[in-house]
Design a protein around this nucleic acid. Structure first.
Length: 602
RNA sequence: GACUCCGUAGCUCAGCUGGAUAGAGCACCCGCCUUCUAAGCGGGCGGUCGCAGGUUCAAGUCCUGCCGGAGUCGCCA
């Protein structure tokens, strides 16, 4: 059970015994660590409701709580705050329970839900770029977090594999190589198994094709016609398109893998194409979809709206579908194939209006209830200038480039750590560095984990909905509240426990708080449950990051102040090993959920 | 023009349903490796919470107005 919940229930009983609502007993970690460990502000609200004196109410509650042996101190302060401090004995008990719990005190969802989470959206024939980064990182983290607390979660990539760009590509290739069998209407045989074009050609042709269509209306019409043919199922086009998808997906999968991101479902817009016509037909028959200015739309505006919501367009006036159409059809597909309780979308905040339209339409049409569709939007990643991240030339930075930049910076850092002898005055330090010497493979592994971890933590530690400045100089400095700080703490836990075993320090044993740093570490460990609950319920991973940082910091202080391997007192040595071990396991668990597992050594 | 998000320390950002002395990290200054990884630890410096009103016993937090920034607003995604 979450510690603050347990305390809330104790204090709530005291309120109830005095004739107040038990909900006034809400306890949280104290804002004033110098005064107490926990606080309850309920006396103020209770007094207001009862038109009583807040201090008088607080006195009554405090008097009841004082009788509880679990509290070392219950004090009334200020206008009516109830300050609570637990005894070390009570903390020891809870620390031992946490250390014995394989989930290290984590929270579990009370109801298991089936959830689909959509955090991809890459397009065929286009390499991933920075715009895909936040969605991938946040989405993967939420996916794993939701699964961790007990939900049945499937991540869906939702490929952009349909529509006009495909027609543009097909016609581009046709102009370039008309001899290919895909373009011969009379061709009846099997098409080649091998793709006629490589990934590189595909990525080169895509921008060329879209630029050509922009400049030349005739060229654009060809692309539209080809798109229509493709959608009608023309064999050659379908076969060619299948090649695009196959080679593109292989590349996309590899790029996501570099980030530790993966998907359970590889569905795309093309998969729901067959559902669109029957869907629209039905909606029209029901009178939900109507014709308007030559287009077929669903009106989603409401009387109470402050802002104007334009209708969701299902068919444009030229008969083509839009992404709102495929989004709606995708909900139907998901509903009928996976039967989810809830569908989550991890997509840029600039699409808030769009999702509001789609969700209203889905709800209005009886397809899926709006309150079970969530747009978990995120802010933009900006450059140092405060504007959306661009390369120096003003272009879009490819994800691969970004990753290799970060790795490059990490490499410099790792080399400094491995070859610091001339900079270090003490032989002992040099010895430490040498003892850490690792093989090339190990160094590569460290490099990857540290670099990707730094990138991910920089993103996840911001609240999802905030824009943030991606300053490569800043976060490759790797100091302070960064991924490497967490990795470093994890590595030190591992290392010290290993050394303790090697030195014959004995087995870990019961936790016995003997110093402030130990008490603070225990209190931090016990906040994990709440951090998980907050992160899950608000779908905000930064609560988890915040906790991970607090934990790493509490451990670093403990580590600096308390000896472990060579502590003379055997029971303290055992206690501290348990504390270190629980810290290490809780930290590693969080790092796994954040998608940034720590290296073995650094 | 309408609507949304934002404005907190020199920089990058937290701040939960209003509550005590507004917190981190970086940068800067001082100290700490003959002892478990110094990517660390301790200490210091630094804020009229954009501005002006209002509600409240209590406002960074709620309401109104203004200033400044970003974004969205029917056939792109």
């Amino acid at each position: 059970m979450i510690l603050t919940q347990e305390l809330s229930s104790i204090v709530g009983e005291a309120f109830a015994a005095e004739g107040f609502d038990a909900s006034y007993g809400a306890v949280r970690v104290s804002d004033r660590a110098d005064l107490a460990q926990f606080q309850c502000n309920g006396a103020l609200a209770a007094a207001k409701a009862a038109k009583a004196n807040p201090r008088a109410v607080g006195e009554k509650i405090a008097a009841r709580l004082n009788a509880d042996i679990r509290f070392a101190d219950v004090a009334l302060a200020g206008p009516g705050f109830i300050n609570l401090t637990l005894t070390d004995a009570a903390l020891n008990d809870r620390a031992n329970a946490l250390a014995a719990d394989e989930r290290l005190g984590a929270w579990t969802a009370p109801v298991r839900e089936k959830i689909i989470i959509d955090y991809g959206g890459p397009n065929i024939a286009k390499p991933l770029h920075v715009g895909h980064l936040r969605s991938a990182i946040i989405g993967q983290c939420l996916r794993d977090l939701l699964e961790f607390v007990g939900h049945d979660v499937k991540g869906d990539i939702h490929l952009g594999d349909w529509g006009l760009p495909m027609g543009q590509l097909i016609t581009e290739i046709e102009a370039d190589r008309p001899d290919l069998p895909y373009f011969k209407a009379e061709f009846t045989g099997p098409y080649p198994v091998e793709s006629p074009i490589t990934l590189e050609e595909l990525e080169r042709l895509y921008p060329k094709a879209s630029a050509a269509c922009k400049d030349n209306p005739e060229r654009a019409k060809k692309a539209r016609d080809a798109t229509a043919e493709l959608q009608k199922g023309r064999r050659g086009y379908r076969a060619l398109w299948q090649h695009f998808v196959t080679i593109s997906c292989a590349a996309i999968e590899r790029e996501y893998a570099d980030l530790g991101v993966k998907f359970d479902l590889w569905k795309g817009e093309a998969d729901v194409d067959p559902l669109i016509a029957p869907m629209v037909e039905k909606l029209r028959a029901q009178g939900i979809a109507v014709e308007d200015q030559g287009a077929v739309v669903i009106n989603v505006a409401r009387e109470s709206d402050k802002k104007e919501y334009p209708p969701l367009i299902l068919y444009k006036s030229d008969g083509a579908v839009m992404y709102g159409t495929t989004d709606l059809a995708t909900i139907i597909d998901r509903r009928d194939t996976a039967h989810p309780d809830r569908i989550l979308y991890v997509v840029d905040g600039r699409q808030r209006d769009h999702f509001e339209q789609v969700f209203r339409a889905a709800d209005f049409a009886g397809i899926f209830p709006k309150e079970r569709l969530e747009h978990l939007w995120f802010g933009t990643m900006n450059g140092k200038d405060g504007r959306p991240f661009k390369t120096r030339a003003g272009g879009v930075l490819k994800l691969q480039q970004l990753i290799s930049d970060v790795k490059g910076a990490a490499e410099v850092r790792v080399r400094d750590m491995l070859e610091p002898i001339e900079f270090r005055a003490f032989e002992q330090i040099a010895g430490n560095a040498r003892s850490r010497s690792m093989s090339d493979d190990e160094a590569e592994d460290v490099l990857n984990k540290v670099a990707i971890g730094a990138l991910k933590f920089a993103d996840l530690s911001n609240p999802r909905t905030s824009d943030y400045v991606f300053d490569i100089d800043r976060f490759t400095s790797f100091e302070g509240k960064t991924g490497p700080y967490l990795h470093y703490a994890s590595v030190r836990v591992r290392s010290v426990l290993k050394k303790a075993q090697a030195a014959g320090a004995g087995a870990p044993g019961s936790v016995r708080i003997s110093a402030k740093e130990e008490r603070d570490l225990v209190l931090t460990l016990l906040q994990f449950g709440e951090a998980v609950k907050d992160a899950v319920e608000k779908r905000l991973p930064h609560y988890l990051c915040e906790h991970a940082f607090n934990l790493a910091q509490a451990f670093s202080k403990f580590y600096a102040a308390c000896r472990i391997v060579d502590e003379a007192d055997g029971s303290l040595r055992a206690s501290r090993q348990t504390l270190a071990s629980a810290t290490g396991r809780q930290l590693d668990l969080i790092l796994d959920i954040l998608g940034m597992p720590a290296p073995e050594k650094m």
